[in-house]
């Protein structure tokens, strides 16, 4: 299972394939680290499973980033991730890209 990784230099966070409540501690740590970079890049292209807790964490992250003036960019978002966000009414909050290029 891929773990969330942050590269401190460019604030890049790759979300794991199983992005659910049980594994969010590492994701949270990675997101916190990403906030210390001038700009953060989220890669959600590998996400195969997602739940409310994960999407809530991402929403909190986006708000925190906005408050601190850290720019956040999506490098990819899987269908699962986008579907979950849409169902929870969080697409706008997360500023997810409309669709990923195939």
């Amino acid at each position: 299972m891929g773990k969330a990784k942050t590269d401190k230099a460019d604030g890049r966070v790759a979300l794991p394939a199983d992005c659910r409540i049980a594994d969010l501690a590492t994701v949270k740590a990675a997101l916190e680290a990403a906030l210390s970079a001038p700009a953060a890049v989220l890669d959600g292209g590998m996400v195969e499973r997602v739940d409310t807790a994960a999407l809530q964490l991402l929403a909190v992250f986006r708000r925190e980033a906005a408050a601190r003036g850290v720019a956040v960019e999506w490098r990819g978002a899987s269908d699962v991730l986008r579907d979950g966000a849409a169902r929870l009414g969080l697409t706008q909050t997360l500023e997810l890209p409309a669709a990923t290029p195939a």
């Binding site: 969010l24 916190e32 909190v60």
Partner: peptide, 12 residues
């Protein structure tokens, strides 16, 4: 929603 630092990811 709390701040990122204060968030326990398992709480709703």
């Amino acid at each position: 929603l709390p701040g990122l630092g204060a968030l326990d990811p398992s709480e709703c």
